[in-house]
Every structure is written in C-alpha cells, then in structure tokens.
C-alpha cells in the first residue's frame, strides 16, 4: 500500500485498511447466551472487540474467567481458558490460580463459530510508559517522568526474563539493564506489583532505549 498520510476525508479508512482484518465494534459478538439490545447499541455503547478484551477479574474458574468490562456491552465477558492460553502475571506461564479477583486484565482472544471467546493470552495488571533513566542497578532501573510526557516515575524491577534494548536497540540484553545509562529515555512494558495502573513499582518485560527528540 503506497498511500501515505491522506486525510480521512479524502479516502475512507476502510479503503486504507482493506488489507487488515477489521471486525471490531461493528461486528463484535457477545458471549454465549448474551444479546446486545438494539436500544443500547443506538446510544453508542462500546462493544467488546472480538480479539481483545479489557476488564477487572470478576470470577475465576479452572477453565474460564469472567471480566467486568465497565462501559462495554456486555459488561461481563467470559474468557475460556485452554491448555494453550498463555498466562502472565509477574512472570510467564503462571497458573490461572495466581490471578486474583480485582486484577486488571488485558487479554488477546478469538471467537469460535459458536460464539465462545477463547483466551490466547491473559495479562494481569500490565503497565507501560516512558521515562528518563535516573539510576541503573543490577536489579532495577529508576525512572523519572520524561519531560512533557507521562507524569509517572517508576522503579522497574529487572527479572531474568526482562529484555533490554539499549543503545537505540543495537545492544540487546536479557536479565540485566546495565547497558542503560542515566539521562537516557526509554519506553517500557511490564506488570505492576498491584492493580493500580499508576503503581510505582513494576516488573519489567521490555525496556527500549530511544532517542526522543526532546532536549
């Protein structure tokens, strides 16, 4: 696709995105036994996307979980767990029993023909953001808020699985952040030590050093 940067008013989004599989809000399917009233659709309530679900852990069972997705229709979203479902809380591949009611959940999903929603992966209490490195230690990186960006400073805990892309990605490390340096700007992903999305401490999954253009 060679078209770049056209205003939406000139060509439709669908024309641009024809190569993508876009089956979002317009065709989202409710879980088994749940129908979406037309009256609610009419007032513009959001529907849970077929391939992505966000909510608070409301029920936990051995083979499925239920999320409370406030502001979405339906508000209660059942995710079926299979042997292939990848569970992330602090680390990788944790059992579903480590999830706690109230956890903030993001999940990649797909729908079966029967309308069941299968969880491909489940992430508890994820956090992400950007910051400026203050200190780099053997087991943690201290960030202050990047100028004019997020106001959240964080302590990123380095785990054996943490991947660090230092030197603008030229130096790739696992389990150590010693390739980072103070005053460098980074993007990061990870999971918080509690459910608060603004939590100060987080276990890092990935940390990317990047030049931002800010000075």
């Amino acid at each position: 696709m060679s078209i770049q940067g056209a205003k939406r008013s000139e060509l439709s989004r669908r024309e641009f995105l024809g190569g993508l599989v876009l089956t979002g809000g317009a065709t989202a399917i409710a879980p088994l036994g749940v129908t979406v009233p037309e009256s609610l659709r009419a007032v513009g309530a959001k529907q849970v996307m077929p391939d992505y679900a966000i909510g608070i852990l409301y029920e936990r069972h051995p083979d499925y979980i239920v999320l409370h997705a406030a502001g979405y229709i339906p508000e209660l979203v059942r995710l079926d767990l299979t042997s292939k479902t990848l569970m992330y809380k602090r680390g990788f591949g944790v059992p579903a029993s480590t999830l706690q009611l109230g956890d903030r959940i993001h999940a990649g999903t797909h729908l079966t023909r029967a309308g069941a929603r299968i969880a491909e992966w489940v992430q508890a209490n994820p956090v992400t953001g950007w910051g400026t490195v203050v200190r780099v230690g053997p087991s943690q990186v201290t960030l202050r808020p990047m100028r004019e960006m997020s106001r959240i400073g964080r302590e990123l805990i380095i785990e054996p699985y943490t991947r660090v892309f230092a030197q603008n990605g030229r130096l790739q490390l696992v389990g150590t952040a010693l390739g980072l340096h103070p005053e460098e700007n980074v993007i990061y992903t990870g999971v918080g030590i509690d459910t608060n999305p603004l939590v100060h401490q987080a276990w890092a999954y990935t940390i990317y050093h990047t030049s931002t253009g800010y000075s």
Binding site: F165, N168, G169, Y208, H209, T210, S211, G213
Partner: peptide
C-alpha cells in the same frame, strides 16, 4: 527501535 540505528526517531 533497532531499525533506528544512528537516527533520532521521536
């Protein structure tokens, strides 16, 4: 990010 070698990309 690795695609950015030597280049500032904001």
């Amino acid at each position: 990010g690795a695609c950015n070698n030597g280049v500032n990309l904001p």
